[in-house]
């Protein structure tokens, strides 16, 4: 099929950036969205032009790198998928497709569609871990009884791939769904309980420090999240945070 692509081009963090138009032909329905960009980049390289910089790695929906805001939606149309899992059969011959980077003051654009998601790493580093004894006296994980429903809910939260679609799609640019997934995952398990209070406080504090917006429960994140992380986790984090804030010494 034949398409018109309108893509955000920005040579570096200090460039103002602009949308540019690229006509493209010979795209097959079975191509993934990223393969379509590959075709465009090949064409650009052949013409001696700068190819479009975009993040990608696994191309199978597990790394969370392929951040693209496509036709006004994070990861484009379709639910529960990343950009690499989006196929061209979702589009029609002759379509115009807008492709933009994640927009958040906390995710500065590095080049074209590539943004710096270091803010997520710093939130993780603030408390998204379990301190373990590494002196050799390790306990068998299975020795700890964990209720099935807790294990399942923790696993659901753990499927978050840190892609940032929640931030990109939130009208407030809030990172609550990501942070809630991390807080939830650990607070539901016995290994994570001892540090639950410090974790909730520290991760929320870091989230605010990074300049993300405030959650007003529009629910847009849950709809666009490729891993369908539920708003229930945000409520759980709110409970954890309130309890921790009220009882901290």
């Amino acid at each position: 099929m034949k398409l018109t692509l309108k893509i955000w081009r920005q040579s570096g963090p200090n460039d103002k950036g602009r949308m540019e138009t690229y006509p493209i032909d010979g795209i097959e329905e079975d191509m993934s969205f990223l393969e379509m960009i590959d075709v465009l980049n090949l064409q650009l390289v052949r013409e001696g032009k700068d190819p479009i910089a975009f993040d990608h790695d696994c191309r199978e929906g597990i790394c969370g790198m392929c951040s693209m805001f496509i036709n006004g939606e994070a990861h484009g149309p379709g639910r529960g998928i990343t950009t690499c899992q989006l196929h061209m059969r979702r589009f029609k011959d002759g379509d115009t497709i807008f492709i933009e980077p994640w927009r958040s003051g906390s995710f500065p654009v590095i080049k074209d569609l590539v943004v710096d998601r270091g803010a997520f790493d710093r939130i993780q580093a603030a408390g998204g871990f379990v301190s373990v004894n590494t002196n050799g006296n390790l306990v068998d994980g299975n020795a700890l009884p964990i209720a099935k429903d807790h294990a399942d809910t923790a696993f659901d939260a753990a499927t978050c791939i840190g892609c940032g679609a929640c931030v990109a799609t939130c009208p407030n640019g809030s990172a609550m769904l990501f942070v809630a997934a991390k807080v939830s995952q650990l607070s539901l398990l016995p290994q994570g309980r001892p540090e639950a209070k410090q974790r909730a406080l520290a991760m929320v504090e870091q989230m605010d420090k990074e300049g993300f917006g405030n959650c007003s429960n529009t629910g847009a994140c849950e709809v666009e999240c490729p891993k369908e992380i539920s708003l229930e986790h945000i409520a759980r984090m709110n409970r954890e945070y309130m309890a921790a804030a009220m009882t901290k010494e």
């Binding site: 950036g17 805001f69 036709n71 006004g72 927009r103 958040s104 003051g105 009208p171 300049g211 917006g213």
Partner: peptide, 13 residues
């Protein structure tokens, strides 16, 4: 919240 997204999307749905 407005400040959290200084550059807005060209196309948003």
């Amino acid at each position: 919240n407005r400040r959290a997204r200084p550059v807005r999307y060209v196309k948003e749905k």
